[in-house]
Design a binder for these strands. Structure first.
Length: 596
RNA sequence: CGGGGCGUGGCGCAGCUUGGUAGCGCGGUGGUUUUGGGUACCAUAGGUCGCAGGUUCGAAUCCUGUCGCCCCGACCA
C-alpha cells in the first residue's frame, strides 16, 4: 500500500477525550475515531490489526477442532427470560441494550451468547455420539457499560471472540477447558503480548472454575495479586490469602460498656484501647434480587478486615439461588422510607434481632446472616450491643446466638501471606483482562432444557464451557504494553504493516526508483509493506512511521545512488546501513523468524 | 446514580468576570523557501460560539431549560 492512498491522518494534538497512552496513540495515529460515548469506528489500519488478531485466533481455535459460526446480535427477550437473565441484564444497572420492535416485542442486543447457542445446540445435538463440540464466533457485542472509558478498553460496542463447548460429562468439559487454556496462551504469545493467567470470579455468567488472562499494564482496570513464587495468581475479586492472627483479647468477663460517639472501629479503638482484630464489625446491606426481592443482609467480619463485595454477592446468590441485581449499604433514609425504626448504626452486633424488620413494607422480614472466616474462631471479642452508644466486651458466639453461616468474604491484600505457602507474599500488579475461560456446568443447559441422549438412552443436560477473548480490547492492550515516547511499537504479528519504505526525498529520481523497486520486491515476497511515497519532508515521514508503529523501516535516502539503504527496527531503534539486496534478505529473514 | 468539569472552524485552546457583531496554535489549500527528524515565510479557505427559550437597542458573554461529552466515586456504620 502506498501511503499517498492510505488516508493517513495523524494528529499532533491529542484529542481531549483520551486519558491513557494507548488511547491517545490510537487517536493520534488515526486508528480509531469516537462516534459517541463508548462507540468507536475502526479506521483502515485498525481494521488490518483486528484482522491479523482474528486470523491468529481462528488458526489456534481451529487447531483445537473448534467450529466457527456467526450468531445473531438481536435476541428475543423470551429466550433470556427462559435462562432467567433478562431482568438482571436489563434492570437496574443492567448492561443489555434493549428495545421493542413494531409488534411491541421485546428484544435485546447481545452482550454474550450463551442463551442462543445453548438453544441451538439443544435443538441440533441429539446424541452423546455427536459430543463434544466447541462452537465459536468473532463479532460485535454490545454492553451498555455504566461508564465507558479508555477507548476500546471499556467500550459499549466491541469485537469479541466467544466460544461455547458442549460435553456429556464434567471430565470431558475439563479436558476442553484445559485445551482452551493452552490455545489462549498460544494466541496471546503469537500476538506478542505478555499475559498472566489468574483465578477469577465468574461474575454474572455464572459457573464454577474460571480463569482470566491479563495483559499486565499500569493502566489496567483490575488489580491482580501474584505470589512471589508465581504459583498463585488471582484477580483481587477472587483472591484468598492467610489472615493475620488476632491480638488475644483480655476480656474474659462478658459485660456491656458505654461507648458514646464511638461509632467507627477507629473511634472505638482510640478511645477504649481495643485492637481492631478483637472487634466484630457488622455491616448491614440490602441486596436487590431477581423478581424484585429486597433482602436485608447482616455481615460479620473482623474489625481489621475489609469486605469483598464480589465474594459477598456470589455467596448470596449461591445461598438463595437467586441472581443479585444490586447490593448496597442500608442508609437511615432508606429505613425511614421503608417505615422502619432507625438501626443502632455503629453498635450493631451479629445477633441484631429480626424484629427490627417486622414493619418493613417491601423488604424481607428476616436478615440473611453471614460471618467471615476471620470471626469464626474469635474469642472474648468486642461487638456492638444493638443499642446506640453501647458495646459488649468479652463476648463469645454461644452468648450471642451462635455463629452465622460461615463464608469467605474478606478482601485479600498485597503483602499478605499465601495459602499455598506461608513464606510466599502476595504482590500487586494491574492488568487488562483480554481473555476469560469458564467451566459453566449445566446452568444454561438446564434452564433452557438443552439435552442429549446418553449411552443409557436417558435425556441429560449438556455440560458446558465458555471462552472469550476481547479482540478489540486486545488490540489496544497491545499498544498499552508496546509504546515509547515516539509512538506505538506494534508486535510484528499484529502490526497493520510489517515494514514501511520511507523515501527521504521522493523527487530524487534515484531514491524514487530504488524505493519503487524495493516495494515491488517486498510485495512479491508477500511481505505486508507500506510505501511512503508522499511529497513530504523526511522528518514528517519519520515521525509518522514512528507514531503508527510499523515494526521495520527501510530508509531510501542519500546513499541510494550506490544502492545503499538503512534498515531500522522500531522496537530496538537499531539502524544498519546495507546494500538494498542485503537489507531485503535480512528483513525477510527477521520477519519469518518472528512469525514462526 | 452521586460529585466535579467542559461544549467556540478537522484537533488543541483563548475570549465570558465587566454584553458592542469571534481570535490564536496545529492541521488544510496555493506559493516561495527548505530538503534525513513534524522547516520558515506569505497568501487563502473554513465557525448556526451544542441546542431552545428569555433579558437587552445589541448575547459566545447575563438568566432559564435542555442535550452531549469527559473525569472522580459508587466498599467497610
Amino acid at each position: 500500500m502506498r501511503v499517498s492512498n492510505l488516508m493517513l491522518t495523524t494528529l499532533r494534538n491529542v484529542p481531549a477525550e483520551a486519558e491513557i497512552t494507548s488511547h491517545k496513540l490510537l487517536l493520534r495515529g488515526g486508528f480509531i475515531r469516537r462516534v459517541t460515548s463508548g462507540i468507536y469506528a475502526y479506521m483502515p489500519m485498525m481494521w488490518k490489526v483486528l484482522e491479523k488478531i482474528t486470523k491468529i485466533v481462528q488458526e489456534e481455535m481451529n487447531a483445537k477442532g473448534c467450529l466457527q459460526t456467526l450468531l445473531p446480535q438481536i435476541h428475543p427477550a423470551d429466550l433470556w427470560k427462559e435462562s432467567g437473565r433478562w431482568e438482571g441484564y436489563t434492570a437496574g444497572e443492567g448492561i443489555m441494550f434493549n428495545l421493542k420492535d413494531r409488534q411491541e416485542k421485546e428484544l435485546g442486543l447481545a452482550p454474550t451468547h450463551e442463551e442462543v447457542i445453548t438453544k441451538i445446540a439443544g435443538e441440533s445435538i441429539n446424541s452423546y455420539k455427536q459430543l463434544p463440540v466447541n462452537l465459536y464466533q468473532i463479532q460485535t457485542k454490545f454492553r451498555d457499560e455504566i461508564r465507558p472509558r479508555f477507548g476500546l478498553m471499556r467500550s459499549r460496542e466491541f469485537i469479541m471472540k466467544d466460544a461455547y463447548s458442549f460435553h456429556q460429562n464434567k471430565s470431558d468439559l475439563k479436558l476442553t477447558y484445559k485445551e482452551m487454556d493452552d490455545a489462549y496462551r498460544k494466541i496471546f504469545r503469537r500476538c506478542g503480548l505478555e499475559t498472566v493467567a489468574v483465578d477469577a470470579d465468574s461474575g454474572a455468567i455464572g459457573g464454577s472454575a474460571s480463569q482470566e488472562f491479563m495483559v499486565t499494564a499500569e493502566a489496567g482496570e483490575d488489580m491482580i495479586l501474584i505470589s512471589s513464587d508465581g504459583l498463585y495468581s488471582a484477580n483481587q475479586e477472587k483472591a484468598v490469602s492467610r489472615y493475620s492472627d488476632p491480638i488475644i483479647s483480655g476480656f474474659n468477663k462478658a459485660e456491656v460498656i458505654t461507648t458514646p460517639n464511638q461509632n467507627s472501629i477507629e473511634e472505638l479503638c482510640r478511645t477504649q484501647s481495643f485492637d481492631p482484630s478483637q472487634i466484630i464489625k457488622v455491616i448491614v446491606m440490602l441486596a436487590i434480587l431477581e423478581e424484585g426481592i429486597k433482602q436485608p443482609i447482616l455481615v460479620s467480619i473482623r474489625g481489621d478486615q475489609e469486605l469483598n463485595i464480589v465474594k459477598l454477592t456470589n455467596s448470596i446468590s449461591k445461598h438463595l439461588d437467586k441472581l443479585v441485581i444490586d447490593i448496597f449499604p442500608i442508609t437511615e433514609e432508606q429505613l425511614s422510607i421503608e417505615g422502619l425504626d432507625q438501626l443502632p448504626f455503629g453498635s450493631i452486633a451479629p445477633d441484631l434481632e429480626n424484629t427490627f424488620l417486622s414493619n418493613a413494607k417491601s423488604w424481607e422480614k428476616e436478615f440473611l446472616r453471614f460471618a467471615d472466616l476471620t470471626v469464626s474462631e474469635l474469642k472474648n471479642f468486642v461487638c456492638g450491643a444493638n443499642k446506640k452508644d453501647h458495646h459488649r466486651i468479652g463476648m463469645n458466639w454461644d452468648l450471642i446466638g451462635g455463629l452465622p453461616k460461615e463464608i469467605d468474604i474478606r478482601k485479600a491484600n498485597p503483602g499478605e501471606r499465601c495459602i499455598h505457602d506461608e513464606k510466599q507474599i502476595l504482590n500487586e500488579c494491574r492488568g487488562i483482562e483480554v481473555g476469560h475461560i469458564f467451566q459453566l456446568g449445566c446452568k444454561y443447559s438446564k434452564s433452557l432444557n438443552a439435552t442429549f441422549t446418553n449411552q443409557e438412552g436417558n435425556q441429560e443436560p449438556f455440560w458446558m464451557g465458555c471462552y472469550g477473548i476481547g479482540v478489540s480490547r486486545l488490540a489496544q492492550a497491545a499498544v498499552e504494553q508496546n509504546n515509547d515516547e515516539n509512538g506505538i511499537i506494534w508486535p510484528l504479528t499484529i502490526a497493520p504493516y510489517e515494514v514501511i519504505i520511507t523515501v527521504a526525498n521522493i523527487e530524487d529520481i534515484n531514491q524514487k526508483a530504488l524505493g519503487e523497486k524495493l516495494y515491488k520486491q517486498l510485495k512479491k515476497e508477500k511481505v505486508d509493506v507500506l510505501f511512503d511515497d508522499r511529497k513530504e519532508r523526511a522528518g514528517v515521514k519519520f515521525k509518522d512511521a514512528d507514531l503508527i508503529g510499523i515494526p521495520w523501516r527501510i530508509v531510501v535516502g542519500r546513499d541510494s545512488v550506490s544502492e545503499e539503504v538503512e534498515l531500522f527496527e522500531r522496537c530496538t531503534n537499531s539502524i544498519k546501513s546495507l546494500k538494498a539486496e542485503k537489507a531485503l534478505q535480512e528483513l525477510i529473514k527477521e520477519i519469518n523468524l518472528k512469525k514462526s
